[in-house]
Simulated assay, not measured.
Amino acid sequence: MKIVVIGGTGLIGSKTVNRLRALGHEVIAASPNSGVNTITGEGLSEAMEGTDVVIDLANSPSFEDKAVMEFFETSGRNLLAAEAKAGVRHHIALSVVGTERLQDSGYMRAKQVQENLIRQSGLPFSIIHSTQFFEFLGSIAASGAKGEAIHLSPAAVQPIASDDVADAVTAVAVGAPLNGIVEIAGPERVGLATLVGRYLAKKGDPRSIVADPHALYFGAALNDQSLVPGPNPRIGKIDFETWFAGQAVSV
């Protein structure tokens, strides 16, 4: 198959491109640097010619409420229109477990709009809801930093390694459209504040963790159901200890 991966040079995109090429597919790693821009529309028509599957892994460069909404609305409309015109047979998007539950977050509101555009497009589709990536633990810590303390919710999370995400995206790409959502998560459920504390300790970061039930997660309040999957998710193989052990010393 010919598969176009939007955001194909990013963390998940590059891993997914390599996996799909290893399976023998023709894969285009599309990004603005390669002349494919979902915001301006540049290169979209050409990239879609003869394409069977499109995987949308693009992310907004800004998480500011207005900017992130404009990104996912514009990118989604342009991409889906180009796919419909070209007769693409399967649209796949990577989204977030808990999107529909965390609408106080501007980012989650924008992801919900993206998902709604997909459902309304008439294209066969699959939406992958992933839990948080281990690779983003540093960013999560930074989001709760107040001086030498980091305030984070103790709510449950079930984070996943990017390699497991890429495996899941690859499996969905070579399968039939779900016309619905599949959830993916890591093998270990743990409190967010506890996990970030483990991460910082392994890095030798001396800052303290404050488990604060009122701490917001990118603008949204959490409970133990907010960021964890429902029944029968696809579970990754890599737990936190295994993931951290595989990271470069600089991580």
Rank of each mutant, 00 (worst) to 15 (best):
E188T: 15
S126F: 07
A86I: 08
A84G: 10
S139Y: 07
T51V: 15
M1Y: 06
S226A: 15
P32M: 06
N37K: 11
E148Q: 12
D205H: 01
I238T: 15
A67F: 05
Q103Y: 03
A155N: 06
L79F: 05
A166L: 07
L222Y: 05
A161W: 04
A58R: 01
H25D: 07
A245V: 07
G10H: 01
G204T: 14
V113K: 14
E183F: 02
A47I: 08
V165H: 02
P124T: 15
L57N: 12
N179I: 11
S208P: 02
F63R: 14
H151L: 05
I39K: 01
S60R: 02
P231I: 11
I150N: 00
G122T: 08
L23V: 09
V190I: 15
F71N: 10
E115T: 07
S95W: 02
G175R: 11
T16I: 07
N59E: 09
G144I: 08
S250G: 10
L117T: 13
V36W: 02
G76H: 01
L11V: 09
G8E: 01
D167N: 12
R109L: 03
K2S: 08
H151G: 03
E42F: 08
V88M: 08
R189M: 14
G122F: 00
V4P: 02
G98A: 05
V5Y: 05
P206S: 12
G106D: 11
A84M: 05
P231L: 04
G7A: 02
N179Q: 13
I39V: 15
K15W: 00
R234Y: 08
G106N: 12
I238M: 04
L222F: 04
N223Y: 13
F240W: 00
G106V: 12
V228C: 07
S143N: 07
R234G: 13
Q112G: 14
V17S: 10
G76K: 00
D65W: 08
M48L: 04
D52H: 12
G76A: 03
L44K: 01
P233T: 12
V97T: 13
I181P: 02
I150E: 00
D212A: 05
E148C: 00
A47W: 00
L178I: 15
L195P: 04
S162T: 14
G191R: 09
P206C: 10
N179D: 15
A245G: 15
T242R: 11
L192S: 12
R109Q: 13
P206T: 10
F63H: 14
S208G: 07
A161D: 10
N223Q: 10
E115W: 04
V169H: 01
R89I: 12
S14H: 09
I39L: 10
I160T: 09
E64L: 03
R109K: 13
L195W: 04
S60K: 02
P213D: 09
A173F: 09
V53Y: 06
L117N: 06
S31N: 03
M1I: 06
A84H: 06
K66P: 10
Q158G: 04
Q247P: 09
E26W: 02
G41N: 07
G191N: 06
I28S: 14
Y199Q: 12
I127H: 03
E73S: 14
K237E: 15
G106M: 06
E70L: 11
P206Y: 03
F240G: 06
